[in-house]
Each structure stands twice: as C-alpha cells, then as structure tokens.
C-alpha cells in the first residue's frame, strides 16, 4: 500500500497492517496509522477496543503478530522497550515506591550511566518544568494524585523521548485537576514540540486536547481526523454514538427529515426546541414528538422524544427551556444540513 506522493515528513509513528492477538481474541486487527512529528494524537475507544494494545505496541511491551511498526523511519519490531526512543506515562503512574521523587525522575539517566551531579541537575530542571521544584526528597507515597502524575511526566520527559506515550493520563484525577492538567499537557507539548500519543476512553478529553483523533472499535480504527471532523462528520454509526452520543438515523428517517436517503447522524445539540407558536426556521424540518425522558445536565437538558412515526430522537436543549417534561408534546426543528450522511455500516 504505497501513497502516490512520498510524504513530505517522516511519520513519528507508522503502523502498517499491524495485528496482535491474545489467544483467539484479535486485540489489534489490521491497523494502519501515521502520526506526524509534533502531533498531539489521541487514540479513543471503549475498553477492549485495542487502543491500549496499540500504545503498548509502540512502547515495545507487546510485539505485533503481523504487520510493521516504524518510529521515525526505524523498524522497531523485536526491539525491547529499553532500546526505543519512546517513553510512557503509565495509567497508575508506576512510580518506584522505594525511591525519592528526585531518584524516580533521575532513574532513566542513572541506567544510562550519567553521573550523579548531572542527573541531579537534570532531574531538578525536569521537576521545575512540571512545577514540582523542591519536592526532590519526598517519597511518592507522600504526594497527591496530581503530583504523582507530574512526577511520572517529568521522569518520562527527562530522558528526551522522540515520542511520549500517555495511557489514560487524566483517568485517575478529579474534574478540576483534570481540566488543569489538560491545558498544562497541551502547553507542555507545544513548548517541547514533541509528539504526544495518548489513549483515552473519554471523548471530551480526546476532542479538547488532540490535534487528531483515531476512533477504535473492535481492534480497528474506524475513523481518523481532526476533532471537529470526527465530531461533525462521524464516519460510522459506532463513531456517531460513541463520540457525543449522536442520533443515528436510517435512510428513510433521514429522508423524512429532508435529507438524502442515506444512513445519517444527527447531533442532539443541533436540534432546536421551538416555543409554542414560534415560526419554523427557514429550511428546517419540523417534527412533533412526545417527550419520554428528560435529564438535567447543568447547562443543558437531554430530552428523549418519540415522533408519531416512531422515530426516537435525543435533543440537547437549553436548561432554561420551559414546558419540557415527560409526556408533553414538543415541536422540534431539525435545521438543514444538521443531518449528516455516514459511509460505513459498522
């Protein structure tokens, strides 16, 4: 499978037909992938979709059963983790409990035979970068979850990897810390110009941090693209449902809403709740539906409703909207262009 034009830059990570199975389970089932240098790349999918195995294949903890993996043009099949210029931030941080914070960060330098004075200085600099100056002598057990995460980050970055791998980096943090770390990771990635590859099952995390998102399902990549594209134009039913829980419409249902007769997706927040007597916007399709369920979600209410024809729709309407309760009949407008056709059948 060769592209017509040679790529302008060597991909940081390239997968060609990579397969990895565990017994009868095909955890990774023919993945092709090219991650550009300096890219913030997200691998998004439910658990068991193969995203973590792909990360472990890059790190070298797993070896492919078939296919080819390159890191900056270098073939890495058969190379152990300690011979690869990639480093990992582990989901449980994996800090060494018997070493101090400073010794943890200096560990990679120590096994490379760098002298104590140099590695102490470099560890100090790395800890300053993640805003943990002065914590060198603490034990990992004395740190909070957020601080441990930063130590893990400093420990991975201090050995200057070409690619940084992050396994569910924000999974164990509470909401406020998570938002803080999101912008910090993004800032760090931009400042260092490094390639970051991260695995997550949280679509909002993937959409907000990544330059590009690969959506995994059942060991395959079902869609790759910038967050806007993946969100706005889901390629398959799975992507539509998994990323932002879109409404999935059959061909005839799309046709009924004035769109081409093809399987399509419709984002809940695109559906407009019309006040009683309000005019239908230009070009929009009007649907009358009976509300079956309402859930309050802070800024919005998620309204589930069924039309007379049996079409079930979920709409996200402003939380301030009145008259929305189970059993009520509402008027919903679906603007032209909100119904997006999908290709795949998956």
């Amino acid at each position: 499978m060769h592209a017509h034009a040679a790529p302008l830059v060597l991909p940081a990570v390239r997968f060609a037909g990579v397969v990895r199975h565990f017994g009868a389970v095909r955890a990774v089932d023919g993945v092709d992938l090219a991650i550009a240098p300096g890219e913030f790349f997200a691998m998004l999918g439910p658990s068991g979709s193969g995203k973590t195995t792909c990360l472990r294949l890059i790190a070298g903890f797993e070896q492919p059963d078939d296919g080819h993996i390159e890191i900056f043009g270098e073939t890495v099949e058969g190379l152990p983790p300690y011979r690869r210029a990639v480093n990992t931030v582990f989901q449980d941080y994996a800090l060494f409990p018997h070493l101090s914070v400073g010794e943890n960060v200096a560990y990679g330098l120590r096994v490379r035979g760098i002298g104590r004075a140099d590695r102490d200085r470099m560890a100090r600099e790395a800890l300053a970068m993640v805003k943990l100056s002065g914590m060198e002598t603490r034990r990992p057990a004395q740190l909070s979850g957020g601080q441990r995460q930063r130590v893990a980050l400093a420990r991975a970055l201090v050995v200057r990897p070409k690619v940084l791998l992050l396994d569910e980096p924000l999974g164990a943090l509470d909401l406020k810390l998570r938002e803080e770390m999101q912008s910090e990771l993004k800032g760090l990635q931009r400042a260092l110009g490094l390639t970051f590859v991260f695995v997550t099952h949280d679509q909002s995390e993937a959409l907000s941090m990544a330059d590009r998102v690969a959506v995994f399902n059942e060991g395959r990549i079902v869609q790759v693209g910038p967050p806007e594209e993946v969100y706005e134009r889901p390629a398959t039913r799975f992507v539509a449902r998994f990323v932002g829980s879109a409404n999935v419409l059959e061909a005839r249902e799309a046709l009924a809403l004035g769109a081409p007769a093809r399987p399509s997706s419709l984002r809940p927040e695109k559906i407009v709740l019309l006040a009683p007597g309000a005019p239908v916007p230009e070009g929009a399709a009007l649907v009358e539906a009976r509300v079956t369920d309402v859930s309050y979600q802070g800024p919005v209410r998620r309204v589930s409703a069924v039309t007379g024809e049996g079409l079930a729709l979920t709409a996200a309407v402003p939380a301030t909207a009145s008259g929305v309760m189970a059993g009520a009949t509402v008027r919903l407008a679906v603007p032209a262009g909100a119904v997006r056709p999908m290709g795949g059948e998956q």
Binding site: P80, Y82, N87, D92, A94, G108, R112, R155
Partner: peptide
C-alpha cells in the same frame, strides 16, 4: 505492580538493571 517493571524497561533499564 507489574507496571513498575515495565516503567523501568521503558526508561532504558535492561532486565538485569
């Protein structure tokens, strides 16, 4: 934790180290 051993290998240590 098995990830401690993986972390060590990841940071460049061979099996003996």
């Amino acid at each position: 934790s098995p990830s401690l051993i993986e972390a060590s290998m990841d940071l460049g240590a061979d099996a003996f180290q």
